[in-house]
Design a protein around this nucleic acid. Structure first.
Lengths: 196, 196
DNA sequence: CCGAAAACGATGCAACCGCATCGGATAGTA
DNA sequence: TACTATCCGATGCGGTTGCATCGTTTTCGG
């Protein structure tokens, strides 16, 4: 068999592996959403993903590796969605709302995110992934904010990011309603726009 | 023996109980700070508190009750510290800094708080305690903010609370340094003051 | 077509979990 | 001093955890 055939096959296998990895990562997110990070066990993950436990072990040498990949997976998805639309100045509102995950459809992602953040506080590896993700979002936000003509765009971007995250958390624990959080976010953005 | 003697003894016993409860709660916080909520097991808690496992079981019927009490314990402590100083208008800076737990001495409390918040997202009982605590802080913040002559003091108080929480989280995962977070918070407060 | 290699799912394993139970130590009452 | 009720710490128990190991099946290169 020719080398290029070998390459094909190898790639195909690798692709399958990656697909299975992603499916497992999805299962991790589902469980983390439902029962928190404690509810993420290898057996339950395998059952949710519709694979055997051995498959999970083969895809990820250890549970921590699995969680690391899962965090990277969801981070990637969220970041891509945020960066998805055009980066017009008017998109700041949309972007901010998506960062805050205020839409009910994103409630699940918000819970997963919170579970990972909490674990990242005591797991340097997870923290690294999270930090990288925040820096990516910060860059995007800074661009949008600076387009408003605001001074200290970076600081304002960071503040907006923190505000959005805090609001998400407060909604999750039931302290604020989604509507109230959305109003607060909107008010903040209005003020930011007025500043420019 | 007279009834009042009985009352004395009973009270003394009850006091001992509460003291032991608090000591156990402290141990819970220590462990949650070091290894996250997963690291909080009855055995480790007992060892940390310097009591037997049976003592922990006797103080709290179940693990959830223990966690519930521990959350109430730390919430109370933080809230009291925040409300401790006089509520002058100038104290807004101090209060905000203490809410954000930016001082390195509060780093541990911040980690514990995050661990509980994450669990509260999937535990209604914990969420109730947390929500009550947030509402308490909100009232204090609203009073301070309204003293600045700001319109929509409640909304601004909520925004400030969310910003502080978000900054705390971002510092914990290593995305922001304490100094940067403090600057952002200060900048926000300055703007708020200028608004009034 | 065949042999090596990889993937597979099932099962085993030691450690740990929360909780229940137990006999003995202790303290309060008459 | 006896009696009793509470407290105490140790141990047991069923269940679950993450991970290792097994024989078997599938896949792929020659």
């Amino acid at each position: 068999m020719q080398p290029h055939r070998i390459l094909e096959v190898t790639l195909s296998r690798a692709t399958d592996r990656q697909q299975k990895r992603r499916r497992i990562a999805e299962a991790v997110c589902l469980l983390a959403d439902e029962h928190g990070m404690d509810g993420v066990t290898l057996r339950d993950v395998a059952a949710r993903a519709g694979v055997s436990m051995g498959a999970v072990q083969r895809c990820f040498g250890t549970k921590d590796e699995m969680l690391l990949f899962a965090l990277g997976h969801i981070s990637e998805r969220v970041t891509e969605r945020i960066a998805g639309g055009s980066t017009n100045a008017g998109d700041l509102t949309r972007v901010a709302a998506e960062i805050a995950l205020l839409d009910p459809a994103y409630q699940h992602e918000a819970r997963v995110w919170l579970a990972f953040v909490a674990r990242a506080a005591v797991s340097p590896l997870l923290a690294d992934v999270l930090r990288r993700n925040y820096e990516l979002v910060e860059v995007m936000l800074e661009r949008l904010v600076s387009a408003l003509g605001v001074t200290d765009a970076r600081g304002q971007a960071r503040a907006l990011l923190a505000l959005a995250d805090g609001l998400t958390t407060h909604v999750l624990v039931g302290y604020l309603t989604r509507d109230v959080a959305a109003d607060i976010l909107k008010s903040h953005l209005d003020r930011l726009t007025r500043m420019g």
